[in-house]
């Protein structure tokens, strides 16, 4: 039995606006990503990187194309064929540039919530959340609310939350943009480890070419079109 692909995208397309305002933000995107792969998405501002992530994250409905995640068909000819809420909480993890966390929950609760939304019993959820936060060096920060965490700590909590329910795919939109290069590199190493140890496929948007030595492949975007090439770690 073969392990299903984490992402199997066929001819995904998305445009905004009509007439002379029309922007083709994503054109005919076809690619495959296996579990355990770390993939960087590069490209100038406005080239369609966020659009690609939101289409893959089932937040943004595409005009056309098909998508399978972890072997499950989620988009067929542009149409959704699954319970999105359920699919998001079970197969997908999200990390963004900033304001990732719920401000009225502390670090532990933010991670725990992601499990409880998927009906993991509170005690177990708490234990697993504590464990992953500890593994990311946040054992001393469990009861801190986001407002008193540093930017790097906030991002690590967000990553813990994205990884805690063992998703097939983690989608991260410029997760290191708000961090200095050393902290950015720490985050990259966490992704690298998560991919290896948890078998998640990690797709992240970045502008920092110095981190490319840690990725398996690079998707380069230009005006909505993408090309895939090998990264520095291979």
């Amino acid at each position: 039995m073969t392990v299903p692909l984490a992402i199997d995208a066929r001819s995904l397309a998305r445009h905004y606006g009509e007439g002379n305002r029309r922007v083709d933000a994503l054109k005919n995107a076809t690619f495959e990503i296996a579990r355990g792969e770390v993939v960087a998405i590069l490209g100038p501002s406005g080239s369609g990187k966020t659009t690609l992530l939101t289409v893959l994250g089932l937040i943004n409905p595409p005009d056309a194309g098909s998508l399978r995640i972890d072997g499950h068909e989620v988009l067929r000819e542009g149409a959704r064929v699954t319970n999105l809420a359920l699919f998001r909480r079970r197969y997908l993890g999200f990390v963004f540039q900033r304001s990732n966390l719920i401000p009225f929950l502390n670090a532990l609760e933010n991670v725990q919530l992601s499990l409880e939304l998927d009906d993991v019993p509170p005690r177990e959820a708490r234990g697993r959340a504590r464990e992953i936060l500890t593994s990311l060096g946040l054992a001393e920060r469990l009861d801190y609310v986001p407002a008193i965490l540093s930017g790097g700590e906030q991002q690590r909590v967000a990553i813990a939350r994205a990884l805690v329910n063992a998703p097939a795919v983690v989608l991260a939109d410029e997760p290191t943009a708000a961090l200095d290069s050393e902290r950015g590199r720490q985050i990259m190493e966490i992704f690298r480890r998560a991919a290896r140890e948890r078998g998640a496929a990690i797709l992240f948007v970045t502008h920092d070419h110095r981190t490319l030595d840690l990725v398996d492949r690079v998707i380069e975007m230009e005006d909505g079109a993408l090309t895939v090439r090998a990264g520095g770690s291979t």
Binding site: L84, A85, R88, R89, R90, F94, I102, L113, L117, R161
Partner: peptide, 16 residues
């Protein structure tokens, strides 16, 4: 609103 949008993104049921 931001937290609610985030909750939806995390796959929270409408009832939550």
């Amino acid at each position: 609103l931001h937290s609610l949008a985030l909750l939806k993104l995390l796959g929270a049921r409408t009832t939550v």
